[in-house]
């Protein structure tokens, strides 16, 4: 197992208001980034440690992309400035070193997903979902009629919706604050994969609208979702009402981000007989691949988001 190690900042660029794309490469004497690029599965995350000695705890960020570029492996994280730590991170210049640890946790179950895959993302949950979308697309064999549809919710102006367009059959976006009427706004009509933007609402408003307009095919569907907790909760409820299996990537306050402190627990339904999507498709719930931990007890229906998650079947969670 790789110890926490340094990585070198290649780029730390503001791509939307207060949203940064951080690209990392191996720094001299460390193969942390190479290792992450080789191993990372969509839905996994990376612990980022700040250089300030006063902010000790890891900042967890979902892996937004891994690239095997000509100049060497690259790890891409996308983050929003929300507090002191991310504010400091945004000041780090290319060439600077930061310490990271990863890949952490368990990602999405990428197969089998059914005929209609819905990728439901909110805000900073969208970039990590793009990584999952790319992997799903890459694994489809020619002639596979699986359809990938993205439903993306933003607070303000969209970002990464174009990237989603590269791998999805259709992309629908919605913004909570953009002014205008609740009509499909045909932006980017010229592009092959037209991202639509319905203004004023949440991603669940968007889903409801698309269903009532007959634009969303929910037969043999499954959902992959990443975003803020209230959105995930709404996605879980909607998925349940439609009988669609959903995988959600959760957020939690973390002390260690690797399973040692028991700070990040989430309440789950008692583990035994959960008829989950993942279960019916032959995988067993909550046995993480690396699991040699004997400390868990069946009477404690709690799991560590950092180690057993961050991706869970939605119906396993006590919302």
């Amino acid at each position: 197992m790789r110890e926490r190690a340094t990585a070198s900042i290649v780029e730390n660029l503001e791509i939307a208001s207060g949203v940064y794309r951080l690209t990392l490469a191996d720094s001299r004497g460390s193969d942390m980034v190479s290792g992450i690029v080789a191993e990372a599965a969509p839905g996994q995350f990376v612990n980022v440690y700040l250089n300030s000695a006063s902010m000790l705890l890891p900042r967890p960020f979902g892996i937004s992309d891994v690239v095997a570029s000509e100049r060497g492996p690259r790890l891409v994280l996308v983050y929003a400035v929300v507090g002191a730590g991310t504010a400091e991170l945004s000041t780090y210049a290319p060439g600077a070193a930061i310490r990271i640890l990863g890949p952490q946790g368990n990602g999405y179950e990428l197969a089998p997903l059914g005929k209609n895959v819905l990728l439901i993302g909110g805000g900073l949950g969208i970039p990590p979902l793009l990584f999952a979308t790319r992997r799903i697309r890459e694994r489809l064999t020619p002639g596979d009629d699986t359809r990938l549809t993205a439903l993306l919710g933003y607070r303000d102006a969209p970002y990464y919706s174009g990237g989603m367009g590269l791998y999805c059959d259709e992309v629908f976006s919605i913004s909570e604050t953009a002014s205008g009427i609740g009509e499909y706004k045909k932006e980017h009509e010229h592009k092959k994969n037209r991202p639509f933007c319905v203004v004023n609402g949440t991603v669940m408003d968007l889903a409801a609208r698309l269903v009532s307009d007959g634009r969303l095919d929910l037969t043999d569907a499954s959902i992959l979702s990443c975003g803020p907790m209230p959105m995930l909760c709404a996605v879980a409820e909607w998925a349940k009402s439609k009988g669609i299996p959903a995988q959600v990537s959760l957020e939690a306050r973390m002390g260690c981000g690797y399973g040692a402190c028991v700070g990040c627990t989430i309440e789950v339904k008692p583990a035994e007989p959960i008829a989950s999507a993942a279960n019916t498709k032959g995988t067993v719930l909550f046995v993480s691949p690396s699991d040699e931990s004997l400390t868990e007890h069946p009477s404690i229906a709690q799991r560590k988001v950092c180690k057993d998650g961050p991706v869970f079947p939605a119906e396993a969670i006590v919302w």
Binding site: G255, T265, I300
Partner: peptide, 16 residues
């Protein structure tokens, strides 16, 4: 077995 406290269980503080 003890289930512990509700979350959030962790808060960062200056150098701690």
């Amino acid at each position: 077995p003890w289930a512990g406290n509700p979350t959030p269980r962790i808060a960062e503080t200056p150098s701690g």
